[in-house]
C-alpha cells in the first residue's frame, strides 16, 4: 500500500513518540543499574546518567553480605513459593467445585463471592481481624490471607467449564470421586491456566510490601520489598539500623566511605527487581494471556 505524504509524516511522528515512550520506560531501570555499579562517593558528585564513571562491585558486596538483606530475600522467596502454591491449589479445588452445575446452592455461593469484589470492610476492620486471629508477626500473615482469590476462581471456573465432559465421565466410571477426578484428570490438564495464574499470584506476593509493614515488626520476617522501603528512606535507615543494633550495615558504611545510602539503595533495589526482570521475557506472553482471559471472559 502506498502512503500519501501526510500519512508518511504521521508514521514518522508515531515512531518517534513510541520510541520516546520506550526510552522513558527503560531509562529509570538503566540509570539505577548504572548507579548501583558506580562508586557511591563518585555518584554524589553528580553527572551519572548512561554509563558508570567509577565502576565498582562494592555496593553489591555490601548488600550481599548484609544479614538482614539476605534474610529478607529468603523470607520473600519462601513467601512467594509457599503463598503461590497454597493460593493456586486452594483456589483451583474451590473453582472446580464451583464449576459443577450439579453443585447445590451454586448460585448463592457465587453471589456470596461476587459481593466481596465490590465491598470490603476497609483497612481498620481487616487489621483488627488479623490482630484478633493472632496472626501478627507470624509468617502466616504473609501467605494465608491471599489463599482464596475470587478473581482467579472466576478464571479457573471458566477454564474448567470448557473442559470436555467425556474425560471426567470416564474417570467417574472408573470409580473416581470428585477429588480423584480433579487431582488425576483435571489438574494435569490445566497446565496453561495454572501457569498464567501462578505468575500473577507470584508477582503480587513478591511485590507486596504493605502487608509486612502493617503486620510484622520482627526483623527476621520482613520481606525484601518492605526492607527496601525502609532503606529507601535515607533518614530512617541510619536510625533504624542503629536502634536494632548488631547490623553490619552501618559498620560497612563507616568502613568504606565510598559507599553511600543512595548507592546501597540502588544495589538493594536491583537485587529485589532481579527475579522479576529475569523471568519477565519468558512469562510475558503468559501474563498477556492471563489478562485477556480475566477481562474478556470473566
Amino acid at each position: 500500500m502506498r502512503l500519501s505524504r501526510t500519512e508518511r509524516t504521521v508514521q514518522v511522528v508515531i515512531y518517534v513518540l513510541l520510541t520516546l515512550l520506550a526510552f522513558l520506560t527503560l531509562y529509570p531501570f538503566w540509570n539505577s543499574l548504572v548507579i548501583s555499579f558506580n562508586l557511591g562517593s563518585d555518584t554524589s558528585l553528580g553527572g551519572i546518567t548512561f554509563w558508570p564513571r567509577a565502576f565498582t562491585w562494592e555496593n553489591y558486596e555490601v548488600v550481599l553480605r548484609d544479614h538482614r538483606i539476605a534474610q529478607a530475600f529468603v523470607v520473600s522467596v519462601a513467601r512467594t513459593v509457599a503463598g503461590t502454591a497454597l493460593s493456586i491449589l486452594a483456589t483451583a479445588v474451590f473453582s472446580y467445585g464451583m464449576s459443577k452445575t450439579e453443585l447445590a446452592g451454586r448460585k448463592y455461593y457465587m453471589i456470596f463471592c461476587i459481593v466481596t469484589l465490590y465491598f470490603n470492610g476497609g483497612l481498620i476492620p481487616y487489621f483488627l481481624l488479623i490482630h484478633g486471629l493472632g496472626m501478627m508477626n507470624t509468617f502466616w500473615v504473609l501467605i494465608v490471607p491471599g489463599a482464596i482469590s475470587i478473581w482467579n476462581m472466576i478464571i479457573f471456573r471458566t477454564f474448567f467449564k470448557e473442559m470436555p465432559a467425556g474425560l471426567e465421565e470416564s474417570a467417574k466410571i472408573d470409580g473416581c470421586g470428585h477429588f480423584g477426578t480433579f487431582f488425576r484428570i483435571v489438574l494435569p490438564l490445566s497446565g496453561p491456566v495454572i501457569a498464567s495464574l501462578s505468575l500473577f499470584v507470584a508477582v503480587n506476593l513478591w511485590n507486596d510490601w504493605f502487608t509486612a509493614t502493617l503486620f510484622i515488626n520482627n526483623p527476621k520476617l520482613v520481606p525484601i520489598q518492605s526492607l527496601l522501603q525502609e532503606i529507601m528512606n535515607a533518614n530512617t535507615v541510619t536510625e533504624q539500623l542503629r536502634s536494632q543494633g548488631g547490623s553490619n550495615f552501618l559498620d560497612k558504611i563507616f568502613q568504606a566511605r565510598t559507599v553511600t545510602t543512595k548507592s546501597l539503595t540502588m544495589a538493594t533495589m536491583m537485587v529485589t527487581t532481579l527475579p522479576i526482570i529475569a523471568v519477565y521475557p519468558f512469562v510475558q506472553r503468559h501474563f498477556v494471556k492471563g489478562v485477556l482471559v480475566g477481562s474478556l471472559k470473566g
Binding site: 529509570p28 531501570f29 539505577s32 508477582v203 513478591w206 511485590n207 507486596d208 510490601w209 520489598q225 518492605s226 527496601l228 522501603q229 529507601m232 539503595t265 540502588m266 533495589m269 529485589t272 527487581t273 522479576i276 519477565y280 501474563f287
Partner: peptide, 10 residues
C-alpha cells in the same frame, strides 16, 4: 510488574 516501592525508588 514492579512494586510501588521500586517505582518510588526510581
Amino acid at each position: 510488574f514492579m512494586s510501588w516501592v521500586i517505582v518510588a525508588t526510581f
